[in-house]
Simulated scan of single mutants.
Amino acid sequence: MSSLISAWFGRQNWFVYATGPLILLFVWWIAYFFTLVDKSLLPSPFATLFDTGVNIATGDVMNDFWFTFVRVFYSFAIAAIIGVPLGIVLGASDRVYRSVEFIIDFFRSTPATAMFPLFLLLFGLGDFSKIAVAAFAALLVVVFNVAYGVMNARQTRILAAKSMGASRMQIFVDVIFFETLPQTFIGLRTAVSMALVVIIVAEMFIGATDGLGHRIIDAQISYNLTDMYGSILVTGAMGYGLNVCFLVLEKYVIHWSGK
């Protein structure tokens, strides 16, 4: 994976990627320097970065980073393992999908945070309830995208395979499966972001003692603003890193997409 990421960024202009973070720091510094936001509510970006660097070097932040990452990984893995085959089965039959479309869309449209009380009642305050609610939210995204990809596979290629005498299994494995991959990756990329969001919120409000969500809310309560903003930056870096990993993997796995 590291070689793929290196290859991806190696062909790009690093200045282009540095522009966004530099603009963010510049706007933050302007807001701080000219007191556009009360300095008691917005610390200096450089003080925040220094404090965050120290916390990373000492391993303080990375401990919470690891707990959050593990929860996100388990949530996403459950969603992907169940969601991909379920989406394929549902998408293979338009009648079957339409019969459960309301259930999928209803819960997909329901904010995951509204499901917290239910999952707390079912699974208690432990890690399992956090992982379960995040997996549930991510699962619906995966199922929807995979089923959509199967139902919208290019009919010309399917008809071409049928005309050459391919069996239904051969058509599914050699045509539909590959046609579905671009939409499947979109679903997986969206699902991992959804899992991260739900896990962070769950760590804030569902009895967590570790994780970046707990760290952010704890720093806010204790008014340690540099730690709070720094933890938010670390959380954003995790989300951005996961997204980049999926973009790179998608580029190399389905390099033929759109052709």
Results as ranks from 00 to 15, higher is better:
residue 45 P to Y: 06
residue 214 H to R: 09
residue 126 G to E: 01
residue 209 T to N: 11
residue 150 V to Q: 06
residue 245 C to Y: 11
residue 229 Y to M: 09
residue 7 A to T: 13
residue 3 S to H: 06
residue 205 F to H: 04
residue 86 L to I: 03
residue 159 L to E: 13
residue 235 T to E: 04
residue 238 M to T: 05
residue 223 Y to C: 08
residue 17 Y to H: 13
residue 220 Q to P: 00
residue 228 M to D: 14
residue 40 S to H: 05
residue 253 V to D: 02
residue 189 R to M: 04
residue 85 P to V: 09
residue 101 E to H: 09
residue 80 A to E: 01
residue 98 R to S: 11
residue 259 K to D: 12
residue 122 L to V: 09
residue 247 L to C: 13
residue 100 V to K: 12
residue 251 K to D: 14
residue 201 V to G: 09
residue 217 I to L: 08
residue 208 A to C: 07
residue 109 S to Q: 12
residue 40 S to R: 09
residue 152 N to D: 00
residue 236 G to H: 03
residue 195 A to E: 00
residue 190 T to F: 07
residue 149 G to N: 01
residue 158 I to F: 00
residue 38 D to N: 15
residue 148 Y to E: 13
residue 94 D to F: 04
residue 58 T to S: 13
residue 132 A to D: 04
residue 28 W to D: 04
residue 253 V to I: 14
residue 153 A to N: 01
residue 220 Q to D: 14
residue 70 V to D: 05
residue 119 F to M: 05
residue 66 W to Y: 10
residue 41 L to H: 13
residue 5 I to C: 01
residue 129 S to E: 04
residue 100 V to W: 09
residue 25 L to G: 11
residue 128 F to H: 01
residue 206 I to D: 10
residue 65 F to L: 09
residue 211 G to K: 06
residue 147 A to D: 01
residue 58 T to C: 00
residue 190 T to Y: 02
residue 251 K to V: 12
residue 158 I to A: 00
residue 150 V to C: 05
residue 137 A to N: 05
residue 130 K to V: 10
residue 224 N to K: 15
residue 79 A to G: 03
residue 240 Y to M: 12
residue 86 L to A: 04
residue 3 S to E: 11
residue 233 L to F: 15
